[in-house]
Nucleic acid binder design. Structure first.
Length: 799
RNA sequence: GCGGAUGUGGUGGAAUGGCAGACACGCUGGUCUUAGAAACCAGUGCGCAAGCUUGCAGGUUCAAGUCCUGUCAUCCGCACCA
């Protein structure tokens, strides 16, 4: 047949829709498979060629599972709250919901044109009140469990537009739109206590099948470190508490540093002779944008506190205290004991401020640099620790500190609590009200969803509040506890909220009594295979694992981990090897590719482009190669032979085996290569029998489903090709009677010979000895050693 | 600086420690065409050759793209995490 993709692709997409071929069945007795891809943000730009890569990959897996007899859930939806939509709405004076609706329609049309086997009956949208009702419901449960709290946090403040900016709107320390100066400004915001789950988020990684780089990224992000907290007495009377991972070096602590924002600066105001200087330093640090602060990170700065000193608790020595921005208020206690001999940053600071450097671990040369190695070295200048190894000293000092009541063992994390608030309109309203008398109160569940009100303007206000703050009717309400006057929270939730539980909603998307029925959750969860971008390893993935664990703790979910398996795809780059972007002018539009080559070719090419996990540049001429392959396949119905060819049958069984296994390893490129080789062989043989062609059609079907349905129909296949049983291969039929092995002399390949498959060393050696070429290499020499690898190689070492 | 990854023909990329370059693109030649395109067939790592080839330098091994040590380059993420 001629590959008339325009006609057949539409034809089969309509048939799949009409027959509801890919709708997941609510028959909980069947074996299930839940395949998940990250739902997209429906941007105004439409689908990007990067989107179909993971979608097609999991589509292939979902399709194969259906053919293997599983009840498959492969859903799709829209993560539609977010800044670009809001900004577009502001600019074009449209309602963000209208913008969203339009973008979703476009995306959906594009996805449908690719023949992806999503179950569209379960489509969800995070901006739908029937959906965000449950996002709010989960938030309320978090709040009631004390996992949501308000805290002063810094936000990015554009001094010119006078609005709060998201991190992605800050470019090199300036506002993306007006290029005005951006500074940090404190604002009281809702936080979620994800740190309460840090240990479990870390430890449970051992129970799931994620690719290693995802696990590593999460581990580093959580950043657990073991150490101790130690209290230092100060001349001001207060105890200054520090966290250290090196309590063993306590005898080498020659000064202390507190973060500029440390509360003691204010507390000690009257005692500090140079208070003004310190405040000036703090203000200067606050003014620095993140960009500047990292740019100048090389040079240490700081101010010595005049009037307050500390006492090293192990040797009673009086030591100075500094403020410096190399100590972060957000980590540990916001204060450190500085051990310049064994910490690079402290060393640099001590050199600059001429502070004493005392070696307490022998092994390095502290006149040159800090000695930070903990694996070797023994303690010196450390009283009762002298002579101990570092690890033993660590244990002994912690025991000592605990005994004396001046410190204790402590675990710290880099992971921060989650800022769960945005000063924007287009997000889920936070279902809490503030009452003068009763404080923050949850609204009654019966009032959910708390819908976004219609506002006049979506522009953020110039005092840093969200546009909701201007809605007096909406903001003013009554306290659910005392009935008095109360005001609603006007910040909205971050975009991450809706995506933190969407995989649960897919299990039972139309339920209006619960976020999903327990029965559906127990059947479908956990997700069997989740694929997404590497960039989500530390945020979305961690957030959604946190929510799943919370719901598990609440007894609402049976699995403590939501995803059994996690893989990640590589980016598709422009033809120039650069990241695709409008400004570079190297963007490939998927619509054009589908129009010019068809969806099957597009799908096949996206899978053939290279290693799925790595990024790869687009190549239009390589797309043609995939189209050629499909055209050659399409023409096979006119090359039917009556008899089976034995060699071809062997190749077919090998191809089935290769494709079956490669799909599981996401080695789609080599699976396609094997199928190409098979078709090349069919051409070389001048045709193929009908049964074999039908079988081949089945294994190609997940990759290029439209053309395979068409071929299947022409060959008189029963039902839909997409739902026909996945073919089995016969191991025996993949084998040949003779096999080519290489012979080597001293490890250098000299030639090849045919030997019976699976033959032993003596047989192989006999055959090789009879080979003339081999003889010329060994004649007159002594054979010292023979190495034989069955069906592979025979190597002789001669002298 | 720290963490992660990647270096293989003209190009994208294949290779459980066992014949490096599968498959595809591109290119060259041929068939068919008035011509071109398409399609099909053949060839195609480098070198006239012996031989040489997986970023570079060592090492382990009968055998290394693959393992080990060092080194260089590129890309991505995080930015002083005590």
């Amino acid at each position: 047949m001629k590959h008339d993709y325009k006609t057949i692709e539409k034809k089969w997409q309509d048939i799949w829709d009409e027959k509801q071929a890919f709708v997941a069945k609510n028959d909980f007795t069947k074996k299930k498979y839940y395949a998940l891809v990250e739902f997209p943000y429906p941007s105004g730009a439409g689908l990007h060629v990067g989107h179909p890569r993971p979608y097609t990959a999991l589509d292939i897996i979902a399709r194969k599972r259906r053919m293997q007899g599983y009840n498959v859930l492969f859903p799709m939806g829209w993560d539609a709250f977010g800044l670009p939509t809001e900004n577009y709405a502001i600019e074009h004076k449209m309602h963000p919901a209208e913008v969203t609706k339009r973008n979703v329609a476009r995306f959906k049309g594009q996805l449908k044109a690719l023949g992806l086997s999503f179950d569209w009956s379960r489509e969800i949208n995070t901006t739908d009140p029937d959906y965000y009702k449950w996002t709010q419901w989960i938030f309320l449960r978090l709040f009631k469990k004390g996992l949501a709290y308000k805290k002063e946090m810094t936000v990015n403040w554009c001094t010119r537009c006078k609005v709060v900016l998201a991190n992605e709107e800050v470019v090199n320390g300036t506002c993306e739109r007006c290029h005005g100066e951006v500074v940090h400004k404190a604002k009281s915001q809702w936080m979620l206590k994800i740190t309460a789950y840090a240990d479990r988020l870390l430890d449970d990684l051992d129970t799931v099948d994620y690719i290693e780089r995802v696990k590593t990224a999460e581990r580093n992000w959580i950043g657990r470190s073991y150490g101790a907290e130690v209290d230092f007495d100060t001349s001001a009377g207060d105890k200054l508490r520090v966290f250290t991972t090196r309590p063993d070096t306590l005898f080498g602590a020659t000064y202390m540093v507190i973060a500029p924002e440390h509360p003691f600066v204010e507390k000690w105001k009257d005692k500090l002779k140079n208070y003004d200087e310190i405040v000036a330093y703090r203000e200067n640090a606050a003014k620095k944008s993140d960009f500047e602060r990292t740019e100048i990170a090389k040079e240490k700065t700081g101010v010595k506190l005049e009037g307050v000193t500390a006492i090293n608790p192990v040797n009673g020595k009086e030591i100075p205290i500094f403020v410096s921005d190399y100590v972060l208020i957000t980590y540990g206690t916001g204060a450190i004991m500085a051990v310049p001999a064994h910490d690079e940053r402290d060393y640099e600071f001590a050199k600059k401020f001429n502070l004493p450097i005392i070696e307490v671990v022998a092994g390095g040369d502290i006149t040159k640099e800090a000695y930070t190695d903990v694996s070797t070295g023994t303690m010196v200048n450390s009283d009762f620790l002298n002579g101990l190894e570092v690890s033993a000293a660590k244990e002994k000092i912690i025991e000592y500190l605990e005994e004396k009541g001046i410190g204790q063992r402590k675990v710290n994390y880099k992971l921060r609590d989650w800022v769960f608030a945005r000063q924007r309109y287009w997000g889920e309203p936070v279902p809490l009200v503030h009452c003068e008398k009763c404080g923050w109160q949850p609204i009654d569940e019966s009032e959910l969803p708390l819908k976004l009100p219609e506002v006049q303007s979506y522009e953020p206000t110039d005092n840093g509040e969200s546009p909701l703050a201007a809605m007096e009717d909406w903001v003013n309400t009554t306290c659910p506890k005392c009935g008095g006057h109360a005001r609603r929270e006007t910040d909205t939730m971050p975009q991450w909220a809706g995506s933190s539980w969407y995989f649960l909603r897919y299990c039972d998307p139309h339920n209006d009594k619960a976020f999903a029925s327990r029965e559906a959750l127990d059947y479908w969860m956990p997700v069997d295979w989740y694929n997404g971008g590497m960039e989500h390893a530390t945020l979305h993935l961690l957030y959604s694992r946190f929510w799943a664990k919370f719901l598990y703790d609440e007894g609402l979910l049976s699995c403590p981990e939501p995803y059994l398996k996690r893989t990640a795809h590589g980016m598709i780059l422009g033809e120039d090897g650069e990241k695709m972007s409008k400004s570079r002018g190297n963007v490939i539009n998927p619509d054009d590719v589908v129009r010019d080559y068809g969806a099957d070719t597009m799908r096949l090419y996206e899978m053939f482009i290279g290693d799925f996990e790595k990024s790869a540049p687009w190549s239009t001429s390589s797309v043609r190669g995939c189209k050629r392959f499909l055209e050659r396949f399409a023409a096979l119905d006119e090359m039917i032979k009556d008899v089976k060819d034995e060699e071809l049958e062997r190749s077919l069984h090998r191809t089935i085996k290769k494709v079956t296994n490669d799909i599981e390893d996401m080695k789609f490129n080599t699976a396609i290569a094997a199928m190409m080789s098979f078709i090349n062989e069919v051409y070389a043989k001048g045709g193929i029998d009908k049964e074999s062609l039908k079988t081949f059609t089945l294994i190609l079907c997940p990759f290029a489903p439209h053309i395979c349905e068409e071929m299947w129909e022409r060959l008189g296949g029963e039902g839909l090709c997409s739902l026909a049983p996945w073919p089995a291969y016969d191991e025996e039929k993949t084998k040949t009677s003779e096999i080519e092995i290489a012979f080597q002399v001293c490890g250098k390949t000299k030639g090849t010979v045919l030997v019976p498959a699976g033959c032993d060393e003596d047989t192989a050696f006999g055959i090789v000895m009879a080979n003339e070429k081999f003889a010329q290499y060994v004649n007159g020499k002594t054979i010292l050693k023979k190495i034989f690898v069955k069906d592979r190689i025979l190597n002789v070492v001669v002298k």
